[in-house]
Design a protein around this nucleic acid. Sequence first.
DNA 1: CGTGCATCTGACAACGTTGTCCAGGCTCTA
DNA 2: TAGAGCCTGGACAACGTTGTCAGATGCACG
Lengths: 353, 353
Amino acid sequence: MPETTRRADRPADRLPGARYGNRPTMKDVAARAGVGLKTVSRVVNGEPGVTPDTERRVQEAIDALGFRRNDSARVLRKGRTASIGLVLEDLADPFYGPLSRAVEEVARAHGALLINGSSAEDPDREQELALALCARRVDGLVVIPAGDDHRYLEPEIRAGVATVFVDRPAGRIDADVVLSDNFGGARDGVAHLIAHGHRRIGFIGDMPGIHTAAERLRGYRAAMEDAGIPVEDAWTSLGATDPERVRRAAEEMLSGSSPVTAVFTGNNRVTVTVIRVLAEQARPVALVGFDDFELADLLQPGITVVAQDAAALGRTAAERLFRQLDGTLVAPERIELPARLITRGSGELPPAA
Amino acid sequence: MPETTRRADRPADRLPGARYGNRPTMKDVAARAGVGLKTVSRVVNGEPGVTPDTERRVQEAIDALGFRRNDSARVLRKGRTASIGLVLEDLADPFYGPLSRAVEEVARAHGALLINGSSAEDPDREQELALALCARRVDGLVVIPAGDDHRYLEPEIRAGVATVFVDRPAGRIDADVVLSDNFGGARDGVAHLIAHGHRRIGFIGDMPGIHTAAERLRGYRAAMEDAGIPVEDAWTSLGATDPERVRRAAEEMLSGSSPVTAVFTGNNRVTVTVIRVLAEQARPVALVGFDDFELADLLQPGITVVAQDAAALGRTAAERLFRQLDGTLVAPERIELPARLITRGSGELPPAA
DNA sequence: CGTGCATCTGACAACGTTGTCCAGGCTCTA
DNA sequence: TAGAGCCTGGACAACGTTGTCAGATGCACG
């Protein structure tokens, strides 16, 4: 129960039913300034053709009434909203903060507002949200897909809504996509472990239906195959990334008949859980994780990771979106940004018996 | 330079100039279905009074044309937008992720969309953003203040825009505020250090102009005074929280003529920097930080913190906002949520010579 | 078969803004 | 001083939707 303190008990001077119906309009301003409606519009929009004296009178009326242009009406009239939508999985996930921020910066640079919502990894909710944004007539849409079928956006794209998918490819629709090199990053991370002498390497990742998870698994397998190491079934674990399952998976592959000496983790949530498990082990186990996270360098040992550049993903996607709006772009592309290995200690541990 | 791969080079079948002017409207749907305009509106909004047969015809026309209601026009007509705005400091700051997410959840529960933007701690930008949102006629506004004068929102509030300030109080305006108990939390944290035998305790915080920083400093002083410990000037450092300054401040108070044996840090950024400095020290130094952060428990030792509940802040603010919109609320209140101490080791270290 | 009623449908205005276009007043020149 | 041309200001329609209200249709009943 929040502890509350009354600050002011003065009677309400704000009418309860006063929505914004009673807001002053340009008409009101015009009446007060004794000019025509369009003249007010001109002043508000800084259009030429108004004498300084008239402008001053209008400005005074605006200030006196507290007038603020109604952008809904403006949008209706002009056709463009100067806003873009961002549909992501979970605002609370630290990976999406910088991404969202980067998209916002680009939007701001183009004079647009950002409207966003979380899909909570639910395809239905993603669709609901994306379509709600389209109904608002956002000029463009940046989507981090939760589902794998985006045909529902076809009419919107045809109608001119610029659309870019980020982090995961769009499903069953031809559109711009900006991704990290999940395959290459995972392959490099696993190769790094192999280079440090490991041969029994575990992989714990997300559900294989998720594109990024599948790609990272593919990278793991490729690195192992390149090194001529056959992968045992017990070494890979795919599924939900809740801490319990991940913990069980880690413990299993650390204790079987041929226990792994190193683990590659498929995303930051998994990595964090595995760190906890490894901390309880008697012998040191090497670890490389996909996705960087704050303080990874402060742990003992520091955690070696394959880092995606979340901000670059967002920036690239947003810039591409605005280039679609410019008309500069025509054919959809698939853009892959490199992921890079950051060594901090945990990935350089030698294999322990 | 991003590495790019062409995916499809088929000629554009999307007209470059096709904004959304060519979107089908209810009129188009009506024409195609051979019914009146209003009937389409009824079907779209699920209003009663349409025969199943007519409804089916309309629905078919809608699907065939890919019609989507234009919410801008709807908003203009109805007066409410079913959207709220969130103005925060920095989406990339992990503290605001959960807060933003909580606000969004509540908004969603009320059928509203969330529009947000970052002020980047710039008061001008905060104002610009807040007013832009008002121009969009958001129904309400959740603001994490960057500036300390919010009188610019008075006309908006009078016009019926529900407004709640979070994390810091509003400046020079009477409005709802939801805060953490910064004073009490800091006092408890410092008292905790004192209880573990420390007397020479340092405080490193943000600029004293920031309300939260001032409150936390006040809490520090109160705890020291309660214990009858005079505070030496060299023990407190207030100012920008960039790593260099914080590092210098920490090193100074650890090396002076009466070096501190414990440090209380004023926010998570400061805490992280101080952790790095302490890791380089020969003798152990106790640490309690304001704000929790991920992995604080995995460090050696775990970091004892005074944790705010960011999600609760967001939730409380958003719920209050919607209650303002309901008309349930009248007088502005100031709500303080408790902060709680989480002990993990670093705050329980005894004083070392 | 006419009346009354309930149900369904559509014409019309309005929301607040901007684009178009024309009127009126001014200055400048012949 | 008259005419041409420019500049400022305003009337009006349109954007796509919803609320109001009245008309049309069908049916039951007297």
